[in-house]
Design a binder for these strands. Structure first.
Length: 421
RNA sequence: GUGAGUGUAGCUCAACUGGUUAGAGCACUGGACUGUGGCUCCAGGGGUUGAGGGUUCAAAUCCCUUCACUCACCCCA
């Protein structure tokens, strides 16, 4: 590998890619704000210890970590939740509860890449802190679903699988299974379907029959029923499947957990999250105890889902085209009027119009081609007509002559901008 | 980290299975076209065939190594 190649798993964002990324970010912000969440951000580099503390030392294998010049062990953040817990523990007194925070940022992991899993990606994180009521779980799920709806995805395209860790911990408690075995057993349940049935049975031991029965019949609980009812009240129940096989790998979840998938099941999880009521206390060494819940949604898998869903893809392409287009292309037909044109270009830009023009003498035909390529809806031609400007509607191809002093008004009228002088 | 597959122009692919100077479409630049855009025609730029080594009179083609990508495993933030 030469120094001219990018590192594996990292991405260049050419204009088209950047447009996609910005489209995703815009929808994320729009919907999160709609739910009353406020944006925040943390550092991209954290002490490696922060992640060890939460997830154990095995996680270091997957961290993008190194020793900095001050001999500190640091890691490129693999996720936001530990940072959030630290920040909340330090600052929670400054805010009314519950906190409803979201963040859009870049995250890293040192793993071999494959589809939907790169070494860097962007993630939206949404968290509610300081609320134990199930209403918060429902609200968070509704937000997660509405985020996908904002991309044009429907209940036929995506599904939220919801489970409850308490369902299993209650189950194990009732059968007098010692608490120190719970995490282990939850991992086995999490792997159900990915691992052979024999191996699962072996690991479950005497609980095998019971657990398999629950897994095949599907679990049920009053809490999960209330959750689905809450979503049904909002007309979102069709997006939801109760699936107690979902446990999630991370050990810090304590209650409702969920994952979002494409209905076709071709891709990795689009998003995942749940309730983590003990994490802030644990990470703050018991200084602060706050119930919390949240989820993360990555840009990579989401982008793939949009790509593979025709109506969502069309919506994105239209939005990107509209965002990218310029308003006006200025055609300089006679170079002696370049200065006149530039004076008016400046005025137009000051008024907020997106204006482009040729930097060097260019044939008129090419200038109109550039207007076309830039998506301009209006062309202004500066030439022998001066002090009049020829205004061409590029959609209808109609032309008219406007005195240059009246140009701004004429343009404003064309774009339906209220008179603001 | 393990295993398999794939690497030819910016993109999609050719190259008669080892045989002249590696081609085409799209894209890009310019011209036909000295004041009018989605056509058309013509021309041009662009490649150490991912990289390094080996076999051979001769390698994009066969062998080895390495790097990258894809898929599966692993893991899932």
């Amino acid at each position: 590998m030469t120094s001219m190649q990018k590192l594996p798993g990292f991405r260049d964002f050419l204009p088209d890619d950047c447009a996609v990324r910005n489209y995703i970010f815009a929808r994320w912000r729009e919907v999160a704000r709609r739910y009353g969440f406020v944006e925040w951000e943390g550092p991209i580099l954290e002490p490696t210890e922060l992640y060890k503390k939460k997830s154990g030392s095995e996680i270091v294998d997957q961290l993008f970590n190194f020793t900095d010049k001050g001999e500190r062990e640091v890691a490129m953040r693999p996720e936001l939740t530990p940072t959030l817990a630290r920040v909340v523990a330090a600052h929670e007194r400054e805010f009314k509860k519950p906190l409803k925070w979201f963040s859009i940022g870049r995250f890293f992991r040192f793993e071999k890449q494959q589809r939907g899993r790169l070494r860097e990606h962007f993630q939206l994180n949404c968290d509610i802190i300081g609320e134990t009521a199930l209403a918060a779980d429902i609200e968070l799920l509704a937000l997660c679903i509405d985020l996908l709806r904002a991309f044009g995805l429907t209940e036929n395209d995506v599904v939220v699988r919801i489970s409850d860790r308490e369902f299993w911990t209650d189950f194990l408690r009732e059968r007098n299974v010692p608490a120190d075995r719970w995490d282990n057993l939850l991992q086995v349940i999490d792997k159900f379907g990915r691992e052979s049935r024999e191996k699962t049975i072996e690991k479950l031991g005497e609980l095998a029959d019971l657990v398999l029965k629950v897994l095949s019949e599907g679990g049920k609980s009053e809490k999960l029923d209330r959750l689905v009812d809450g979503l049904r009240d909002r007309g979102l129940a069709e997006f939801v499947d109760i699936d107690v096989r979902i446990v999630r790998g991370l050990a810090y979840y304590t209650g409702i957990v969920f994952e979002l998938f494409d209905r076709a099941g071709n891709l990795r999880a689009i998003a995942g999250g749940g309730r983590y009521d003990n994490l802030i206390q644990q990470l703050s060494d018991d200084a602060v105890s706050m119930p919390a819940l949240g989820f993360a949604m990555g840009d990579v898998v989401l982008g793939e889902v949009v790509n593979e869903t025709p109506h969502a893809l069309k919506q994105m392409q239209q939005a990107i085209a509209a965002e990218r287009k310029i308003d006006i292309y200025v055609v300089i037909a006679k170079e002696k009027h370049r200065a006149d044109a530039l004076a008016q270009i400046q005025q137009l830009r000051d008024h907020g119009y997106r204006v482009d023009y040729p930097l060097t003498p260019t044939k008129v035909a090419r200038q109109f081609q550039a207007a076309e390529d830039g998506g301009a809806s209006l062309a202004l031609l500066y030439g022998d007509e001066w002090p009049q400007v020829k205004v061409k509607n590029l959609t209808t191809r109609e032309e008219s002559l406007i005195p240059n002093k009246a140009l701004l008004d004429s343009v404003a009228k064309f774009f339906n901008v209220p008179d603001s002088a």
